[in-house]
Design a protein around this nucleic acid. Structure first.
Lengths: 111, 111
DNA sequence: AAAAGTACTTGACATATGACAATATTTAGA
DNA sequence: TCTAAATATTGTCATATGTCAAGTACTTTT
């Protein structure tokens, strides 16, 4: 396999990894509508502040979000809105996979 | 946040997690063209057989691939080719992110 | 049909990475 | 400078990874 694509793959894996947590997906859901500061996420995702901050750092390291200080607050936003397309496509995959499985179960019940 | 979407998000996170490894991305690259058996992956991804087998199990558990025994061999294929669209979109994101960063470096060098 | 061989999977271990909660740091205002 | 609020970091525990060895399933050889 080409050396270049190996390195790209590692970056891809890093981004996928950043997306691979329910709490981080919730954080991104909150960022669909607008930018917001850390304290805005807390009631929305239902987690401790330190935990939210930690997960935001992971998203930031992967380049999915960027932030800006505004006085005491730090405001986060997505760097590239295409990330939502990716999440939406994966959701479709997950749902069609669930449907496939339930069809299978129905067929098995019939026999 | 709605209870239903919480559960969907956990499934999504599980699939993202399965994609979050360079070796598993390589395995999927090999599966772009056609189904293949475990021994076909080994020279392609450059890993031990047991390791490949472990990673295939993770992809299978996430519902990304399925397999079938054919004599001694076990043949794997993707369950839903849309997974490649997701990988391709993420690759675009990663590359445009790299470009953005290199632009930033250029600007900094100019000043 | 037993033995040997092939293709793959599973389990056990050491090490690396990730998650959560307590603690620390930074910042703004009195 | 002191206090309080917002956010980040650290320590501890759990989970993931890669390697080796053993196990399973099927095929071929004797």
């Amino acid at each position: 396999m080409a050396r270049q694509s190996e390195e790209i793959m590692e970056l891809e894996a890093e981004v996928f990894n950043a997306l691979a947590h329910p709490l981080r997906l919730k954080i991104l859901e909150r960022l669909r509508s607008s930018a917001c500061c850390v304290c805005n996420f807390i009631p929305y995702v239902g987690a401790e502040q330190s935990n939210v901050s930690h997960h935001l750092a992971i998203l930031k390291k992967a380049g999915i979000v960027r932030c800006e200080k505004k006085g005491l607050e730090v405001w986060y936003e997505v760097t590239d809105a295409n990330i939502f397309k990716i999440i939406d496509m994966l959701e479709e995959c997950v749902i069609s996979n669930l449907k496939r499985k339930s069809e299978l179960l129905k067929e098995m019940a019939r026999k």
